[in-house]
Design a protein around this nucleic acid. Structure first.
Lengths: 198, 198
DNA sequence: GAGAAAGTTGAGGCAACCCTCGATTTAGTT
DNA sequence: AACTAAATCGAGGGTTGCCTCAACTTTCTC
């Protein structure tokens, strides 16, 4: 929105960078509610300085997460670029969860951004149109069951986030197995039971 | 193990009961890490009295949860009693998650009891033999895919617990839809893709 | 290199929750 | 009614994390 209103003093710019690095690492390791003091210490800076640059935890997150979530755009893009709509769709799922499995903060963020509606969710919401397109394309090709929609993907993200959280430190990759089961339930053919209503 | 070693004084017995009721309600509403002070206040008793009766949070939980988890035994029993192995298996899943959806503390407990191995998980573990039998029966009938096992059920509990947690206050019942998708992936027939390894 | 503006610091106040222990009250007994 | 063991009470000390602000230090400019 505002261009950089004030040019930062050199030491301030340096500290801001150190804070961003430390925050990214700490959040990735310990999740979105990691203590801000840890971040300040890791950056070699006092807690007051942290608050100077980022008056709230959210400000700090907004400085970090959009960059990370940008990877989602790429995932969307290559899903759409896939000539096979179904494998594009499956690639989307695998891409999302691989991302979440690599980074505690993304895992947390994916859950929260769909609960709360922060500015951050827009960064992600920008890509949500693409997601819809990927889903529709797979349906139109007769490969994805017709009653699956974006909200169901959100629910799936909730579900997988917990699987990832519980297993990421002890058995990373376990989530793939769970996802496989789920994907096998998403094929168009069986149309086993009519779904319960929303 | 020990029979009631000392008969409680009448007021103590009364307070203990009030604490158990208050704790059950509070945990059900707010999850397993609800503040103990809330429970004491709700029981009309001081925090010191709570600690008198239950020296740790775990002691309190062990006095409450086994009773609640006993419902699982019934669910197992009626799943095994079902003449159709597949619908017994599906009934098992629905039973478990219905329970979790009614009670925050059970939802938390089902996740934690599979992570940590407390005494509590044994109450649940006692029934795990039954669960295995239900799974095997559905496989033997050729209805449940052969590569599904108990560990996969644990993973499913993790997954569904998050869906339930996120939706139970705003859209209770939404989890059923998610479960349907998953169940449709568990049929024996499609055997779509070989699963990724553990 | 001196002055002003910008930035940094960390102790300290606040809040939530945990748990303890000496003073006090109560239930049961003779 | 008096006594005692059992039970209760709740203030207080400990911890963790949040956030602020007045005193200090650094950078930048002239």
């Amino acid at each position: 929105m505002a261009a950089e209103s004030k040019p930062l003093r050199s030491d301030a710019a340096r500290n801001r960078d150190k804070l961003l690095v430390a925050a990214a690492q700490t959040f990735a390791e310990r999740g979105l509610d990691a203590p801000l003091e840890h971040i300040a210490r890791r950056a070699g800076v006092s807690i007051g300085t942290l608050y100077n640059h980022f008056p709230t935890r959210e400000a700090l997150l907004e400085a970090i997460l959009p960059q990370r979530l940008a990877a989602l755009e790429e995932i969307n893009a290559s899903a759409l670029a896939d000539p096979d709509p179904w494998s594009g769709f499956v690639g989307l799922l695998e891409g999302i969860f691989t991302l979440q499995a690599e980074d505690h903060s993304l895992n947390d963020a994916m859950v929260q951004s769909f609960s709360l509606s922060t500015d951050m969710s827009q960064a992600c919401g920008g890509g949500l149109g693409d997601v819809e397109r990927i889903i529709e394309r797979a349906k139109a090709a007769g490969r994805l069951r017709a009653d699956f929609d974006v909200q169901d993907l959100v629910t799936l993200v909730w579900a997988m986030s917990q699987v990832i959280r519980e297993s990421m430190d002890t058995a990373p990759g376990m989530w793939r197995r769970c996802l496989s089961f789920f994907i096998d339930g998403l094929h168009a053919e069986p149309a086993a039971q009519p779904l319960p209503s929303r």
